[in-house]
């Protein structure tokens, strides 16, 4: 199984390690051709504005959209979730793939001093997940086909829509491969 990690900016190394811990071969994606032959894809944490601008300048937006819309199991964490989403609550537009029918609020929990970690319950994962939230977004509006998998203080922080899973937090930072494993199990069923 080949688990791609979008490697424009962010915690690429941690996603590659989580993919390997889930039993897959990590593949770094920097240009469109790197998307060929993947079984899953992770869009890492980082700065969503930076990742969006680089994806646009280097011709990755359409190829990513096409691959995800054709069923590639895709995980977006934090900035990755913002990049997958249909919109944000900010006045200024930013480059987004728009493949996940949610609107996100960026930096929703506040600045870095408000960043936190906590054990949260996730639908479909038996034991709690240690979730690290770093200047994290939450989901403000959820579209009809979107299932909420986890919430914090009443705000959705993990969702699934078809072949896409998105988290406000960073499952790649804790050495727990269960979320990445979830993605590999979606292959073939999507």
């Amino acid at each position: 199984m080949r688990f791609g990690v979008l490697a424009l900016q962010g915690d690429v190394r941690e996603h590659a390690a989580a993919a390997a811990a889930a039993g897959a071969e990590p593949v770094l994606v920097r240009v469109a051709e790197d998307l060929d032959g993947l079984d899953a894809l992770a869009i890492p944490g980082g700065e969503s504005t930076t990742i969006g601008k680089l994806a646009e300048r280097y011709g990755l937006v359409e190829p990513l959209r096409t691959a995800i819309e054709s069923g590639l199991p895709t995980l977006g964490t934090c900035a990755g979730m913002i990049f997958l989403a249909a919109g944000t609550t900010e006045a200024r537009p930013q480059v987004q793939l728009g493949v996940l029918d949610v609107v996100v609020r960026r930096n929703a929990f506040g600045s870095q001093v408000a960043s936190f970690e906590a054990d949260i319950d996730v639908v479909g994962i038996p034991d709690p997940v240690r979730a690290v939230f770093i200047r994290a977004p939450w989901i403000e509006k959820v579209g009809a086909g979107v299932e909420v998998l986890a919430e914090v203080e009443g705000h959705p922080v993990m969702v699934r829509e078809g072949n896409i899973v998105a988290t406000s937090f960073h499952p790649e930072l804790t050495g727990d491969p269960r979320v990445h494993t979830l993605l590999l199990h979606m292959r073939g069923r999507a």
Partner: peptide
């Protein structure tokens, strides 16, 4: 809910990797 942990502090730097 824990704030200011080592993981949270080092974690933001992890998110900045590959950036300017």
């Amino acid at each position: 809910m824990e704030q200011g942990t080592v993981r949270v502090k080092r974690g933001l730097a992890e998110m900045l990797k590959g950036g300017v």
